[in-house]
Design a protein around this nucleic acid. Structure first.
Length: 362
DNA sequence: CATTCGTGGTA
DNA sequence: TTACCAAGAAT
């Protein structure tokens, strides 16, 4: 007589063996490659990660190369991926592993969990995938999958739901193949048990799913409360001085990664106030007729991003963390995605202007 | 423990 | 268009 969790495990493992996606970090699995991929995949979709992962592994193929790489090199490889704190923690972890663990990822939960940027999920994922140890790994996918299978009514994103799913995942974890079991659950959440319109008809564990039997898939995880959207305007100021351009280091109150750069950017719910802030901070006159770029940028709370050209009033502005960057070396400075797109735009137009000048000289 | 951190995708 | 979600962690 096969029990529930045993049959469940076999069904989902069988499906995973047949249907898993062909992903770069699934060939030549090592402690290092798994570590990099797990960090990149935190709150980031597989499709987004793939090119970043390939570039990163090619450039920094092992613990030592990462530990001894310059901060700027590592940040450039992460540029555009978001959540930049992750890359700081990633490098720090590599340094610790090279220094204190002889260049090999430790195989004890507490030691892995202590590494910066490694939480409960990542520790479990690494131990189960790299060392095949029986630890569960519960991510957003697994929460959704289990909340449907067991019709867990706790509200979405609540800690009680998270706790409940960790408990269930521990109970369901098979002693054999825990790494593939964890990955199979996540893969199921990514391919079959998706947030909306789950594909239950092709689900390998539909017979084990209470939501499927009751037709309640859309009720789990239980829906959250609505929020109001307050638009916020962001403007970036392009301050030029001959062939140099002004960047500043991102520095905010939190202990955040300090080596990321940006064009001076100001936000306010009121558009005019945003411009006034910029003019006051930089002591410049912003020319609204010389709009270089108008771009819409929408997230949960922010709505527009505009780039303006500005003229000097008083050249003696600069506090620390502001720097004039020659246009030619602009590309070397790691920026966040939105700023990065502005940078590319500026470089592109700059090149076009240079070409025109060359033609005139001829 | 509720927020914040970036960006892209979906219905 | 908008709310919600994605291989979460730190504070």
């Amino acid at each position: 007589m096969i029990n529930f969790s045993d049959e469940f495990s076999k069904n989902i493992l069988n499906w995973f063996a047949r249907c898993q996606r062909n992903l770069p970090w699934r060939k030549d699995v090592s402690d290092y490659s798994s570590f990099i991929s797990e960090f990149m995949l935190q709150q980031t979709q597989v499709k987004t990660v793939i090119p970043y992962y390939n570039r990163f592994i090619e450039k920094l193929p092992n613990w030592k190369s990462l530990a001894f790489a310059s901060e700027k090199t590592v940040l450039k490889l992460w540029e555009g991926l978001g959540y930049y704190r992750r890359v700081k923690n990633l490098k720090k972890s590599a340094e610790i592993i090279v220094q204190h663990y002889n260049g090999k990822l430790p195989d004890q939960f507490d030691e892995i969990h202590k590494l910066p940027g490694v939480g409960h999920y990542t520790a479990g994922a690494l131990l189960s995938i790299v060392y095949k140890k029986p630890y569960p790994a519960v991510d957003g996918n697994v929460i959704r999958v289990f909340s449907r299978i067991f019709e867990i009514k706790n509200p979405a994103k609540s800690t009680s739901l998270t706790q409940e799913v960790w408990k269930r995942a521990s109970e369901m974890l098979p002693p054999y193949d825990p790494g593939n079991f964890n990955q199979a659950l996540m893969e199921l959440g990514a391919l079959i048990c998706i947030p909306k319109n789950p594909r239950c008809l092709v689900c390998p564990v539909q017979k084990h799913c209470q939501s499927f039997h009751h037709g309640t898939q859309s009720l789990f995880p239980s829906t959250t409360v609505k929020k109001k959207l307050v638009p916020t305007y962001m403007i970036s100021v392009l301050l030029k001085q001959s062939n140099r351009i002004l960047l500043r280091k991102i520095s905010n109150q939190a202990s955040w990664f300090q080596s990321l750069w940006e064009f001076p950017t100001y936000t306010d719910k009121n558009f005019k106030r945003a411009i006034a802030k910029a003019e006051k901070d930089l002591d410049v006159q912003i020319d609204r007729n010389e709009l270089l770029l108008l771009k819409f940028y929408i997230t949960k709370h922010k709505v527009t991003l505009k780039l303006f050209n500005a003229d000097f009033h008083n050249p003696v502005i600069f506090k620390k963390d502001y720097r004039w960057i020659p246009m030619k070396s602009l590309a070397q400075y790691p920026l966040a995605k939105a700023q990065n797109q502005i940078r590319d735009f500026i470089l592109h137009t700059f090149q076009k202007i240079q070409k025109k000048i060359l033609k005139r000289k001829k």
